[in-house]
Design a protein around this nucleic acid. Sequence first.
DNA 1: CAGAATCCTTGACGATACTG
DNA 2: CAGTATCGTCAAGGATTCTG
Lengths: 119, 119
Amino acid sequence: MGKAYDVMAATCPSRTVLHRIGARWTVFVVNALDDGPRRFSELKGHIRGITPKVLTETLRSLEADGLVSRHAYDENPPRVEYALTPLGRSLLVPLRAVRLWAEEHVPDIEAARSRRPTP
Amino acid sequence: MGKAYDVMAATCPSRTVLHRIGARWTVFVVNALDDGPRRFSELKGHIRGITPKVLTETLRSLEADGLVSRHAYDENPPRVEYALTPLGRSLLVPLRAVRLWAEEHVPDIEAARSRRPTP
DNA sequence: CAGAATCCTTGACGATACTG
DNA sequence: CAGTATCGTCAAGGATTCTG
């Protein structure tokens, strides 16, 4: 039997999914939730340089896609925790690998880049 | 010993690398080279919907990063083949996993999305 | 065939300030 | 603390046409 979805097909829903994963900050946020639930400010502090607006947007889309769950405690001051859903945790596996690949191969890529000075 | 690079650090080069990987079409092009070298037009035909300009740009950056190699045959009509370098093939491993994840979990994501009708 | 050239659109991302 | 609200930009991506 052939596969049901093919990212190479222009109209395939899997392409939308893959584009969402490819969004600038998805890999970072999912990886930041690797160690368990985290609060908004913890995420913001951990993913250096991300703005609250962008973090919110990213979390909202991940939530809409069922990858992240949000739990607001009825306390004062407010407390909100984000966690990976089982689906999100399944995505974490490949995304962690991508993250590790990036961290491991920085020297290789920088070497390749310096070999081709931009004119 | 701690790790040398951390994508969570704002100024870390690994973040640049990860952003490059996250570029819209990188995952598609790298996966399209899974089966071996391919010509420009083959890639264009296989990755449905990509325009020649974007394909060229993507290939050029992948080349600059040492992930893809380009070989132009001196023939007429012109023939150019693109292939993954060893470095590119090492990236293929996690990226293939991401691609498969996307293709496998379309139903889950669509279910999650329909659970939250956009107002 | 493999692209280069051109022009254009848009939405993702960012900086800053404000609020329940 | 956990966000919204605004405003601005800019570069990635796209459509089209042309060429060695």
